[in-house]
Simulated assay, not measured.
Amino acid sequence: MKIEVVRAWPHRFDAVVLELDETATVAQAVAAAGFQDDPQITGYAVFGLRVSADTRLCEGDRVELLRPLQADPKDARRRRAEDRPLKKK
């Protein structure tokens, strides 16, 4: 089966397309892509849904390697709202 493994940073990403057997897991896909030693990996997702390393994959899955957040999303939204001018009614 064909799957894709993706790891991303701000403004760039690595993507590897692999052919694996039908019983492949997330951990096997990450190892086959050569990303298993990345110390920043904090978890895994398939199409944005968090999964464990022993999750079985399906044809066409995209495995995403998760990293720690660089900023708290609530703080980032608050800063954006503060920077926006108020709309007059």
Rank of each mutant, 00 (worst) to 15 (best):
L20A: 07
F13S: 11
D14G: 10
V26N: 08
V51W: 02
A15C: 04
V46A: 06
V26R: 06
A33K: 05
V51G: 04
P10D: 04
G43H: 01
V16R: 15
F13Y: 14
A33C: 07
Y44T: 06
V17Y: 13
V30G: 05
T23P: 08
L49R: 14
V17G: 13
F47C: 12
V17F: 11
D38P: 06
V30Q: 09
L49H: 11
G48M: 07
F47R: 11
W9D: 09
L49E: 13
A24Q: 02
A32H: 06
A24R: 02
D38I: 01
V16N: 01
Y44P: 10
Q40M: 12
F35E: 01
P39D: 04
D14R: 14
D38M: 01
S52G: 14
V26S: 00
V51N: 05
T23F: 02
D38N: 07
D14S: 15
T25K: 07
V26K: 05
D14H: 14
E19S: 15
E19A: 12
I41P: 05
L49G: 09
G48I: 07
A24T: 06
A31D: 10
F47D: 02
D38V: 01
A33V: 10
I41S: 08
H11I: 13
H11Y: 15
D38C: 02
T23D: 03
L20Q: 00
E22D: 06
L20I: 10
F35G: 10
L20D: 05
L18K: 06
R50E: 13
G48Y: 03
H11N: 15
A32G: 03
W9P: 08
G43C: 12
V17E: 14
T23E: 14
V51M: 04
D37M: 00
Q36P: 08
Q28S: 13
Q28P: 02
G48Q: 01
A31E: 12
A29M: 13
D21F: 03
A27E: 07
D38A: 00
G34P: 07
T25A: 01
T25R: 01
Q36G: 12
V30I: 08
T25N: 07
V46H: 11
A24G: 01
A33L: 04
A27P: 11
Y44F: 09
A27V: 01
